[in-house]
Design a binder for these strands. Structure first.
Length: 233
DNA sequence: GCGACAG
DNA sequence: ATCTTGTCGC
């Protein structure tokens, strides 16, 4: 990441206006590094957030699984006040702070990150997975349940089938049938990965459910964090 | 100008 | 995402 981009984040970490947030995304968008990918896959992380709208708080959780056995290696969570509204395209500014706080508590370094959102298949080419992948300097993949940008055709019904998600003449991601006869998930690379590799890796981590294991674990962990936090007050 | 719009 | 009961289907 360039000094200029870092300065932007230092000056306006996460407490920014939606307008400023868009400017920050544009500054960071030039720092994506695709086509690399993890040299060796040993630790895979999944991160997700849950909300307590009564507080209101955003509860984030990150789980690290060993590959390929997928056993739990480490799990961390963090809760922060909600300081940014939900605006399609600016999700990172709402969930990012809490997610990063959870990542900061990790004692191990994951080789690959999975986020519950999009990567480069985003209006400014910088979805949640790209944004956090850059900040954490780690290969990242975005997996969303709904499309945000681009057009695609319905993939065949068999698990493993997929069709490309295109915007303009570029392929930004894929509509992946992670499970037979179930609605596809939308996969796009976030950081340091090609579209093809992102789809391949996501399929590798799917174990019979719609979402890859890291995200299923993270989703449950985030909800547990919310429950624990609510019970302690 | 009008609709669409991750979680 | 979250608020919510029962309910259809593998």
């Amino acid at each position: 990441m360039s000094p200029a981009a870092i300065r932007v984040l230092r000056l306006h970490p996460w407490r920014v206006s939606p307008h400023r947030a868009a400017a920050i995304q544009e500054a960071l968008a030039g720092h994506l590094r695709l086509r690399d990918g993890p040299r060796r896959l040993r630790l895979v992380a999944g991160a997700d957030a849950a909300y307590d709208q009564a507080a209101p708080l955003v509860h984030a959780a990150v789980v690290v699984l060993a590959y390929p056995d997928l056993t739990l290696v480490e799990q961390r969570a963090a809760s922060l006040p909600v300081t940014f509204p939900y605006i399609p395209g600016l999700l990172a500014f709402r969930e990012g702070p809490a997610l990063l706080r959870a990542f900061e508590a990790l004692t191990v370094s994951p080789d690959l990150l999975f986020f519950n959102g999009h990567g480069i298949a985003h209006p400014r080419g910088l979805g949640l997975a790209s944004h956090l992948g850059i900040l954490l300097r780690t290969p990242a993949i975005g997996c969303a349940l709904q499309p945000l940008l681009g057009s695609f055709q319905e993939p065949p019904p068999q698990a493993g089938a997929f069709t490309w998600v295109r915007s303009g003449r570029h392929v930004l991601g894929a509509a992946l049938r992670s499970r037979t006869a179930v609605r596809p998930i939308f996969v796009s690379p976030g950081y340091r990965l090609s579209v093809r590799r992102a789809v391949r890796l996501t399929l590798t981590l799917c174990r019979g459910f719609r979402l890859p294991e890291p995200l299923r674990w993270a989703h449950q962990a985030a909800n547990r964090q919310r429950a624990l936090h609510a019970a302690a007050r």
